[in-house]
Amino acid sequence: MKTLLELALVLAAAAALLSVYRLIKGPEAFSRAVALDVLTLITMPMMAGLALWVRRSIYLDVALVYAVLSFLGVMALARYADRGV
């Protein structure tokens, strides 16, 4: 089972690398925003996995707070494009 979890970690890291590529390359600011969204969604399970690894449930709260606030940030970005924050 440890092997499966290691595989998951490698896959998540590779996914983070790919979305960083899109972040650097992205022709317009919105493609970068999509990359930021995907990076957030990759980081949240990584934080939860870290919580499992060190057996401290407070790490999950960080993931929860991150989910709420990154939603806020992306919404602010979208509203900015539309008619100002």
């Binding site: 089972m1 499966l4 979890l5 595989l7 998951a8 970690l9 896959l11 998540a12 590779a14 996914a15 983070a16 690398l17 790919l18 979305s19 590529y21 899109r22 317009e28 919105f30 493609s31 999509v34 990359a35 995907v38 969604l41 990759i42 399970p45 996995g49």
Partner: peptide
């Protein structure tokens, strides 16, 4: 649980691959 985590990580990877390969926003 481990199988689900690995499967989920695979889908995360596919999503990231998607944002690299697709042609427009």
């Amino acid at each position: 649980g481990s199988v689900l985590v690995a499967l989920g990580a695979a889908f995360l990877f596919l999503g990231a691959l998607g944002i690299v390969r697709m042609p427009d926003l």
